[in-house]
Design a binder for these strands. Sequence first.
RNA 1: GGGCUCUUAGCUCAGUUGGUUAGAGCGUCUGCUUGACGUGCAGAAGGUCAAAGGUUCGAAUCCUUUAGAGCCCACCA
Length: 871
Amino acid sequence: MTDNKREIPKAYDPSNTEDKWYKYWLDNGLFHSEPNDKPPFTIAIPPPNITGMLTMGHILNNTIQDVYIRLKRMQGFNSCWVPGTDHASIATETKVTKFLEEKGIDKYKIGREEFLKHCQEWRKEYGGIIIQQLKKLGVSCDWRCERFTMDDDYYREVIKAFVDLYKEGKIYRGYRMVNWDPANKSAISDEEVLYRTVNGKLWHFRYPVVGSDRYIVVATTRPETILGDTGVAVNPNDERYKDLIGKKVKLPIVGREIPIFADDYVDMEFGTGAVKVTPAHDVNDYGMGQRHNLEIVNIFNPDATTNKNVPDWLQGIDRFEARKKVVEWFEQNGLIEKIEDYQNKVGYSERGAVPIEPYLSEQWFMKMSELAKPALDVVKDGKVKFYPAHWEKTYFHWMENISDWCISRQLWWGHRIPVWYHKQTKEIYCEIDPPKDIYNYTQDDDVLDTWASSWIWAHAIFRTEKERKYYYPTSILVTAPDIIFFWVARMIMSGMHFMKDIPFSHVYFTSVIRDLQGRKMSKSLGNSPDPLDVIKEYGADALRFTVLYLAPLGQDVLFSADKCDFGRNFANKIWNAGRFLLMNAENIQVDDKLKDAHIDFADEWIISRFNETLAEFNNAMDNFEINNATKIIYSFVWNDFCDWYVEMIKNRLYGDNDEIKSAVLTRALSIFENMLKMVHPFMPFVTEEIWQLTKERKDGESISTSEFPKVKKELINLQADREMKVVVDIVTAIRNIRGEMNIPPSKKINILLKSSEVGERQIDYINKLAKGEEIKVGLNISIPTASAAAVVQSSEIYVPLEGLIDLDVERQRLQKEITRLEGSLAGIEKKLSNEKFVSGAPSDVVEKERTKQRDWQENLRKLKEILENLN
RNA sequence: GGGCUCUUAGCUCAGUUGGUUAGAGCGUCUGCUUGACGUGCAGAAGGUCAAAGGUUCGAAUCCUUUAGAGCCCACCA
C-alpha cells in the first residue's frame, strides 16, 4: 500500500466531513434561490418557536423536507426552502416572564415597553439556537431569506390581514365566555385547551328550598363555583322536581335567593338531576343563564383568585383554597348529601400547567364559517392533497363544525391589535398605520394569537410581488398532525382568502416519534435523546437515514439512539464501496472514453437493476412513501451493488488486460456516482465527501447541484436480470452446501453443473463467487458418487467432496429438500385438480401454476434420483 | 358518545389493484484474518399473518363481528 491509499480511512468518520461540507455549500450559495426560468419547488419551513430546542420531531420533519428539496434541486427544479422562526407569543412571554422573575424583575412593574425590550434581547440571545441546531442536520435551506414572524415587513402583513378582515366584517369584538389561562392571565383559543382525565370528587350538596323544609340536592365537581350560582336547573320532564319549578332556593354560604327553573339541557340520569347554574364560570351554564335571564356573578379575578363578589371571609384566595373552604363549610353545616369518587376531564392550558377557567371577557373574534368554505372545497376537490389521506376526514369534521376563533391575547409579546379607541367619542379606528392625531386615541392593549400571524406564513414569507408570483403556492407542507387545526387548516383558509389560491398542493403529516415503550417523547419524561448528541455520536447522515427508514407514512416511530447503528453502518458501507473503487484507481487508469467498452453481463445486469431501482424510487417519492424509498436505496446499494456487483467486477479488475481493467473501473465508478446521487438527498455529507474524491472537481462544484439520474428504460434488460438470477440461485445453493457441509471458504471446490441454462457468460462468475477451483458445465457430465448436490431453477449442481462428505448428512439434506418440495407441490396439485380453479381463474394464472408444477415435478424427480444414487 | 389508526418471525416493521413456497433489518445460532468494509462476509433457524365468521376457484390482502393497543373530537354538572 502506498501512502496515498492510506489517506482513505477504513471507517467513515462524519466528524471530519460534516461541518466542512456545510460551510462549503453555504459559502458557494448552493441553496440560494432567485426566481428564474426553471420551475419552482418551494417549501416554507414550519417555523420552530424561538423558545424551542431541537427535538427528534424536528429531525424527522426537517429531514423529510430536505430530502425533497435536495432531490428536486438535482432534478432541475429551482428549489427554495424558506427557513424561519415563530415569535411564539404566549410561549415566549411565559419563558421571558420566568426568566425575569428569576432575576427578581416583575414584568408588571417594568411595564410593557421595558418588557418587550427584554423579549427582544432574549430572542437575540436564545431565539436562534434551534436554527443553529438545524444546520447540524445538513438542511439545505436558503438562509439568505430567513424569516421571523415579527420582522417589520412580516408584522405589517399580519396587521394588514387583520385590518382587511375587520373591514370585511369578519373580525369583531365581543363579550364572551372564553378559555382563560389564569397563569398567563390571558384568553386562549379552544384549540389550545388540552383535556386531561383527573380523579376528582362529585359532591352532592343540599340547597334549602325557600318557604319549605325541603332540600334540592345538586351535584358538582367544582364546589367553589357555588359562590357564583344564580340558579338551579332541572329537566322539565323530571317528575321529582316538577313541583319545585318556579320556587327559589337559598344559596348556602352566600344567602342569595336564586330560582329553580326547567331546561332541556339537564340530563335526568346524571347526578341528582338538578344542576347548580353558574353563568359566569361554565359554558353551558352561561347558555342557560342567557335563556333564562339569570344574573351573572363573576367570582374570580383574572388570576383565578376570588374577588369582591364573594363573602368577605372567602375573598382573595386561590380557587382551590376556596374549594376546600366551601366544602368545609358544607360539612360543618351538615349540607353534604354524599361525596363520590369521580373521573372527569379538566381543561388545561397548553402552556401554563394550570386548569383553564371559563371566563367572561371582552375579546376579538374571527368569523370562520365563510373563510372555511373555500378551504374545505380545495381539499375535497383534491387541489390540496393530504398524506396520509385519512387526515382529510379529521379536517372535514373540524371545518364543517368550525366556531369563531378568539384571536386576542392579554399579552405583550406579539402583534398588537391595530385598533385605536377615540378617547372622547370611543370611535374605533382600525388601520395599518396609527391615527395621525394619535394623542386623541388609546390603542387596544391586546396582541394577536400566535397562529393569527403564522397562518399567513406560506405567502407572507415572500417579500416582493415577483417572488410571490413565482414561488406561491408552495409545493409541500411537512408538519405534525397535531397542528392540523392550529396551522394547516388556517393556512389554507388564509391562502384562499388573501391569495385566492391554495398555500401548498401537498401536505405530508409526519409520524410521531416515541420511545421504545411507545411513549411520546417529551421533556418531562426525559425520554428523548438530544439529537445533537446523536449526531455527534453517529453522524447526521446516520440519524437522517435511520429516522426515515423507521418512519412509514402514517405510523408512529419507536426510536432510540442506538438504532442509528443502522444508518451509520449504511454510511460506512457506501464509504467503503467508494474506498474500494478509489483504491483500485490508484493502479488502474480511469478513462471516460472506455465507460461503455467491454460491456459484460454483470454490467448489463447492474445497469438494468439501477434503472429499475430508480424507477421504483421515483415512484415511491412521488407517492410520499419515503420510508419505502430508503428501503429501495438500501437494498440496491447493499445487496445489488456491494454484495454482487462489486464482487463480480473483481474478476476483471484483477485480470491482466489493462484496457478491460480500465473500462471496468471507469464504468463501475460511473454507476457508483449515479448511486451516490440517488443517496445524496438522504445522506448529503458522506455522498458529497466521496463524490468529491471520485473525480477532480471544480471549485464550487457539488453533488448537491449535480444532475439527478433519469430512468433509461432502454437499459432495463430483462434477459440480463434472468441470467443473473440463475447465477445468484446457483451460487447461493453452492454456498449453502459449503455451509452445511462445513467447508471453509479457503477450501476450493470443484463444481459440476448439469444444466442447459448456464451460459458462457455466467460460468466464470459462478466459479468465482462460489469459490470454485474448477467448474464444468454440460448435460453429459459424470458425477462422482461422493458429491453434495442441489437442484435450483432447472440446473443440477454437484460438488464432489471425496473424503469430505458425510453421506448421512447429505442424505438428510436432500431428504429435507425433497420433503419441502413435496409439500409445495401438494398445494399446487390440489389447486390444479380443483375444477373450479382451472375454469374460474384467469388462464395466465392457471398456466403459470402449470409451469410451476412441471418445473417442481422435474426438480423433485431429479432430487429423488440423486438421493437414489447416493444409497 | 362520535371518528380515525393499528394488531404479520423474539423485537421493529414491509407486503402495491386478492394469484409463486408471506419478506427485510435487528437479535439468535453456525462458519469465516475472503487484498472495500468485523460498522464486515457467507449460511441457518424462526411466522396456522389478533380471533371467529363470510365473499371467492383462491384471502395477510375485501366484508361483518369480537378482543386488545393508541390517537383525535364532543358542553354531561
